[in-house]
Simulated scan of single mutants.
Amino acid sequence: MKFLCECGHPIYNQTDYLPYKAHVISDQDWFNFLDEIDDAIEKAGSTPEDKEKALMRIRSLAVNLSKSVYQCNECGNVFFYRNPPQLEMFRSCSDNPNKELFKSAKGDG
């Protein structure tokens, strides 16, 4: 996927580990998500197949509950991507927005 910010800067989603992309889970879903993780760990069987099934259940849930969010590196505008495909843009209330909102907490590594 590629789209243009209103400032004209292109925003790409053609690879993984993007420093300007994040995944957001609503607060209404967050604790249910954590409960599902706990449940998958506690109830996963002992075979590799059981563990794989539990992992895939959590990954699927994470994908279904999250929204993709992008930030323009040039102006700092933030875009939420929702299904059905729709982009919603938000501007910073600051004249000098932080343009690294979604950079990894672990750094570039």
Rank of each mutant, 00 (worst) to 15 (best):
N64I: 02
P19K: 04
N13L: 05
K106M: 13
L55F: 11
D50I: 02
F80V: 14
M56D: 12
R82N: 14
D27M: 06
E88A: 11
C72T: 10
N98L: 07
T15I: 04
L61D: 05
I41N: 03
F80C: 04
E42K: 15
V24L: 13
L65Q: 07
A62T: 06
C72Q: 08
K53P: 00
L55A: 15
S66M: 08
L101E: 11
R57A: 10
P85R: 14
F33R: 01
C93L: 14
G107K: 12
R57N: 10
N73K: 13
F80G: 02
A22L: 02
D38I: 10
D108T: 12
D16G: 03
L101F: 10
S60P: 00
L34T: 09
S94C: 09
V69L: 04
Y12L: 11
I25G: 03
N32C: 11
E36C: 10
F31D: 14
P48G: 04
N77G: 03
P48N: 09
E52A: 15
D35Q: 11
E52D: 08
K103Q: 15
C7H: 01
S46T: 12
V24D: 01
S60I: 00
P19V: 05
G8E: 03
F90G: 05
D50N: 13
M56E: 12
M56S: 11
E52W: 00
